[in-house]
Design a protein around this nucleic acid. Sequence first.
DNA 1: ATATAAAATTAAGTTACCCTAATTTTAGTC
DNA 2: GACTAAAATTAGGGTAACTTAATTTTATAT
Lengths: 227, 227
Amino acid sequence: MSPALTSETIEMYLKSICELETIESPVAISQLAQRQSVSSPAVIEMVKRLAAKELVTHTPYKGVALTVTGKKRAHNVLRRHRLWERFLVDVLNLPWENVHDCACRLEHATAPAVTESLAALLQHPVRCPHGNPIPDADGNLPDDEKLPLAALEIGQSATLVSVGYEETILLDYLSRRGFFPGVTLTVEDIAPYQGPLMVLIEGREQPCALGREIAGRVFVTMDSGEG
Amino acid sequence: MSPALTSETIEMYLKSICELETIESPVAISQLAQRQSVSSPAVIEMVKRLAAKELVTHTPYKGVALTVTGKKRAHNVLRRHRLWERFLVDVLNLPWENVHDCACRLEHATAPAVTESLAALLQHPVRCPHGNPIPDADGNLPDDEKLPLAALEIGQSATLVSVGYEETILLDYLSRRGFFPGVTLTVEDIAPYQGPLMVLIEGREQPCALGREIAGRVFVTMDSGEG
DNA sequence: ATATAAAATTAAGTTACCCTAATTTTAGTC
DNA sequence: GACTAAAATTAGGGTAACTTAATTTTATAT
Ligand SMILES: [Mn+2]
Ligand SMILES: [Mn+2]
Ligand SMILES: [Mn+2]
Ligand SMILES: [Mn+2]
């Protein structure tokens, strides 16, 4: 028997590689291991399988990069994931911070006909509830103008676009403090020595302290007249 | 590491055992093997795992039966399956004969919160598009009054309730000929030697020949005044 | 009661995916 | 340029779920 074309595990690796490539390319084995919560040898082994299927290229001791086919496949998973997220939030009214995990299971169990009917039902949404773009049916993913909140200087204002690197702990943390796509933020202070940013959400009284790590995962666009 | 509480494979075995139990109990290993499209040794091995988890009881050389826990678990899978089927037909407008396969994948990837929100969205439907009852959130499944079409005599009329033992080939075959829950059927003739039944769907000109095997999987209720 | 066919089970082996421990390679420091 | 810590890789092993081939048990038919 020839090995299966794909599997839930393979799809998750492809998706992770795709997401990590936006930060560094090629992607380090250790990064993938951390993201997938598995050991490095497990990653090495899987990377060999993926390379055999020509979904990634592996440069030993350097890292992994998606091939064109691999990237298409990854974008397709992302499409399913983000469409399900929209459905779960918009139609089923499930909480913004929980839908990521639900979608992460559904994404692997979705037939093409279901994906496309879902897209039609939702009227072909462009972004997931966390602000990340939804690839089109052909696998095209527009990369948008955005910069990490951590790149702002004191006094600058910006609009929250998206939460990169989605994970429930992070989404939970942000939602509790009112950080959603669309809100307007002002950096009131930046502590030295990689300390936290004091960020005010428009309409709130008190600013909120965000660590650099998190501020690097929250993406914004500068409000016009300030860029 | 203790073995996972459940898996897609385990859920499918439980569901199959549950469905087969309505025909014969305990369920024969060979029946399960056929239903799951795997070899008998594979079934034996899995049955041992299920027995270890106390989800089934296995009487060697006799067969398998669900425990109370096992049946609850099976009903829960059936609930998810049938709710997804309703969603796919009612909300996404996918074809009646295709949704079974789509739902068979989604059913294993559905968090409890998703299941219940889905049920609410659909206004707590009682039956799947193929007429089979949807267990409630507690796992209760009402067994309804119905008899196989094969049990009717010549001249008798009945209403199609459900298609048991769902499989795409069967659903495809029936949908092409107009057999859906709710239609009124009349048995016009029954061929001897296990030959086919000539069945007329109300409103049609020509009767349709259905083999005994299929007529045994189509369930009806007698129209009042004929039982 | 015995022969035989069918069903169930055991035996032995495979693949995907994971692990820990040991080793090798790379990159940064003096 | 050698020394060392971190990262990558190899070696060896495990489990879930499957396979085919061989064996045992049950059911049936004479
Ligand atoms: Mn996933
Ligand atoms: Mn998202
Ligand atoms: Mn299934
Ligand atoms: Mn159904």
